[in-house]
Amino acid sequence: MALRELPSKARSSIWRDVRPCLFSAKPCFNRKVSTSANHLEDLESSSSFSVPPPSEDIVKSYDPVAQSKIRENQLPPSRYQFRPPKYYRGPLHPHQPPPPSDPSSRLFQPGPFTLPRLQQTYESTIAPDLLTLSYAHFPPGYKAPPKQQRLRSWEGESPYFKNRPLRGPRGGDTLRLLTAPKTFRNIPKITGVTVHSMVPEAAHDSANLHVAGMIIQAITNVRVQTHKARSNVTQWSLRENTFVSVTAKVEREDAFHFLAKLIDIVLPRIKEWKGVKGSTGDSSGNLTFGLPPDAVALFPEIEVNYDMYPPRMIPGCHITVHSSATNDKDARLLLQSIGIPFYGKFVN
């Protein structure tokens, strides 16, 4: 038995002898991007920014409008006035719509138009700090203990339990999101904002809903969606199938601009505002808070032409901040770091 181990031991000891000289020779052939001197330079040495510009007279004589007017035979409109098909008729149809990234597509959305300040702050300051704060050290060779089965099996004598799908967890039939160990790849970030405004008075006078839509549109820079009441609730004077609310789903650049306006301009000016309640959240990283009508009127877009809106029709709204965090604790830390205060008992 022991003799059988000998060849492997000898092999490893020989390898141990040889290894140092191999590693001393390493830099010669084991080249890495980070160790090479010019890893920061572009792959292509010449860029269009380094090429000298065209001469002065070429620049001065270039006039695209004049050139197009000189042209004798105009281009046929079918060449440049392309209209994509209104309906998708399947992959075999000869007339296919262009991809959504094509400006001629019906789904194309232009943008981005700016690089928001909040986004730059997140990338340069907030994200590294969040990673440092939530770092958990595991020694090398650590293996996470295997996860238990989260769904329960059916225990009992009943013959109907055989091959039955597993039972949901105790206290509810949905599984909560799992939180993965923090790495630089899964730092929580803001994925979007939903602004929602419910106007029950719209059942009597639809002007309320129109004003609410204009206001939410103005403060979010996004087209709003209207929603009908799903059921009759007499206490709230809701009637089924009447339009009662508007929402705007704000993403990317618009979300950063909206949050920056909210945090830097609106929230500091609300009188006697305690902050966002600590118990908010849907336990999967989306936090909601509300603004009263006089706080909505503080948005700069509303303030500049406040007189244009009919009196007493400015609505309040609910703001849901969606984050990629998988629990409320991480999401709260993210919102605190971008400047939203919380008060009261924290519920995770």
Partner: peptide, 26 residues
Amino acid sequence: PPLITRDLHPFEKAFFLYQRRLNERL
């Protein structure tokens, strides 16, 4: 930490203006 936004690359500047004008058309 940085106090102001960074200077944009010339390509970013040109791209943002192009997208703004495109938005104006659409």
